[in-house]
Structure formats: structure tokens, C-alpha cells
């Protein structure tokens, strides 16, 4: 009787926690969408930000966010997957590996503002890349790499050991087994992890304040020469991203509709990240279903 009661009590408590969590999330997202959704319009998404007048948009910021994300993933995906393969398949269980693993863990739990400071000292000051997309993307690489290594390592480790054995027993080399058996089997997990981390990168602001900067030159979206200073593709120009824009508008903007712009931009940001999460789930499930034929 008593244990029955305890059982029911704990189920009740756990359910309460779950409901509370879901409630906080829904409340937060709902509030931002409620405040900002009315401000989202095609004009808001496709016009330049204004410095003094009301009615500015977020076109450049939106572009910058996606572009920095793209450049960051260009760096992190190959490096991270290579690191994950090393950690899961080649690293011997010794002190050095343990040390590397702690390094990765510390790196992934560093406050992003610290990563931003580091980025400023190294990329902006030391390499003289100034406030630029490249500096920002490299800072975000530092911030994102340990996550991807971890995701990739976990996904590879969750592939059953007999897949490795059967690959080798069929006369494949270790590398070929990794390439043709383990990586495809781990692919849904890696893909989901990549997209989720992309959401994290997309929303990151602190690491970009001192690396990608708070301003964007007047971009000419008809000039796709990556060397031109006003080209959207130029990686050596400064670039204010969406989340940095939210912070800047809230902190020290003199435009009269700062609140609306901030809420609108926040709503766009949340929608994008939601989209990342949902697509991560859907894609992961789709690939999984294709692989298992169920």
C-alpha cells in the first residue's frame, strides 16, 4: 500500500516537472511570437535596417546569420566528423585520450563571451582580419567544434560492435569499414546533431559581438563578387547577425520602433531555430526509415 502510494506520488511529481518544462517553453515561444509575429512582413524581411527612422527591416542581418552559419559549418563539419571518428574509432583508452576528452568538454562548456574575447584577440587583432565574417565564423567554430565532435563520437559509438566485426570479417580495412558501414549507420544521428548545433550557432550572439562586429556595410545584393567590399559574399567585411541585431537594437538604438523591431527579429530567430529543430527530427527519421526499410 505504502509503496503503491510512493509510486503514484513519484509519477505525479515527474509528470509535474515535465508539464512545467513544456509550459515554460511554450510560454516563452508563445510570448515572443505573440509580440513579434504581427511585425513580421515581407517588407520587414527584405528591407535594410534604418539608423534613425521607424520602419527598418532585417534583410542584411538575416542574410549575415545564414551566411556566417554556412561558413561556420564549412569549417566545423569536416573537422568535427574527423575528430569524432578519431575519438570513437582510433583513440586508445589511455591518459592522452582522457585529457583530450576533458579538453573537449571544457571547450564546449566555455561561456560564449569568452570564446568571443578569444576570437577577438586571435582572429581580429593577431591575424588582422578585423571585425569580419571570417573572424566570426572561426570564433563560432571554436564554440561549435566540440559539440560536433561529441555528436559524431556518440553516433559512431552507438553503432553496434558487430557491425565493425562483420565489416572486418568480410575483408574490409578498418578505414573502409568506417567509411562504408559505420558512418552510413551513424548518419541519422550525425545529421540530427549537426542541424541542432546549427540552431545553436544561428542564435549565438555573445561570441560574435567582438568578432563579426555590430555593423554591416551597405550590401549590394546584385554584386556577387566575393572580393568586392559591398558584396554579400565577402568574408572580410563586418557582419551584424540577427541575434546581435536584437541585442544592439534593444541596448542602444535610437529608432522609435526599437521594441517592435527587436520583437519581430526575435520572432524570426525563434521561427528559424524551430525550423532547424523540426527539420532535424524529420530528416533524421526519414533517413532512418530509408535505412531500416520500416
Amino acid at each position: 500500500m505504502n509503496s503503491n502510494k510512493a509510486n503514484r506520488m513519484s509519477i505525479f511529481l515527474i509528470t509535474c516537472c515535465a508539464v512545467l518544462m513544456a509550459g515554460i517553453l511554450l510560454g516563452l515561444v508563445g510570448y515572443i511570437l505573440y509580440q513579434g509575429f504581427s511585425h513580421i512582413s515581407l517588407r520587414f524581411l527584405t528591407s535594410d535596417a534604418s539608423a534613425f527612422l521607424a520602419g527598418g527591416g532585417i534583410k542584411n542581418q538575416l542574410w549575415n546569420s545564414f551566411y556566417i552559419l554556412f561558413i561556420t559549418m564549412l569549417f566545423t563539419v569536416p573537422l568535427g566528423i574527423a575528430g569524432g571518428i578519431y575519438m570513437a574509432e582510433y583513440a586508445k583508452p589511455n591518459k592522452l585520450t582522457g585529457f583530450m576528452r576533458s579538453c573537449l568538454e571544457v571547450l564546449s562548456s566555455l561561456p560564449s563571451i569568452i570564446v568571443g574575447m578569444f576570437g577577438m584577440l586571435v582572429f581580429v587583432n593577431f591575424f588582422h582580419w578585423e571585425y569580419s565574417i571570417l573572424s566570426g565564423a572561426l570564433a563560432l567554430t571554436v564554440f561549435n567544434l566540440p559539440v560536433i565532435v561529441r555528436v559524431c563520437e556518440d553516433a559512431l559509438r552507438s553503432v553496434p560492435q558487430d557491425q565493425r566485426l562483420s565489416g572486418l570479417a568480410l575483408g574490409l580495412t578498418k578505414w573502409h569499414t568506417i567509411k562504408k558501414v559505420l558512418l552510413p549507420a551513424a548518419f541519422p544521428g550525425i545529421l540530427t546533431g549537426l542541424i541542432l548545433s546549427a540552431g545553436r550557432v544561428f542564435g549565438e550572439s555573445a561570441a560574435l559581438l567582438f568578432t563579426a562586429g555590430l555593423s554591416t556595410p551597405n550590401l549590394d545584393f546584385t554584386n556577387w563578387n566575393p572580393l568586392a567590399p559591398n558584396s554579400p559574399l565577402n568574408v572580410f567585411r563586418s557582419a551584424e547577425t540577427l541575434s546581435v541585431h536584437i541585442w544592439a537594437v534593444n541596448a542602444d538604438s535610437i529608432i522609435p520602433d526599437a521594441k517592435q523591431v527587436a520583437y519581430g527579429a526575435a520572432a524570426v530567430l525563434v521561427l528559424c531555430i524551430l525550423l532547424f529543430n523540426v527539420s532535424a527530427r524529420c530528416l533524421g527519421r526519414l533517413v532512418e526509415r530509408k535505412m531500416t526499410g520500416k
Binding site: 558487430d162 575483408g171 552510413p184 549507420a185
Partner: peptide, 20 residues
């Protein structure tokens, strides 16, 4: 050993086809 395992094959306890 890679060549050896082609000549001396092995089948395991649990069926373990590749997810292909």
C-alpha cells in the same frame, strides 16, 4: 589480415547485416 579474412570468412551469432 585483410586478405586472410577474405579466404577465411566468419558469420556471427547475431545476424548483423549492414543497414543497406
Amino acid at each position: 589480415v585483410v586478405a586472410l579474412r577474405k579466404e577465411i570468412g566468419m558469420v556471427f551469432q547475431k545476424p548483423n547485416p549492414f543497414p543497406k
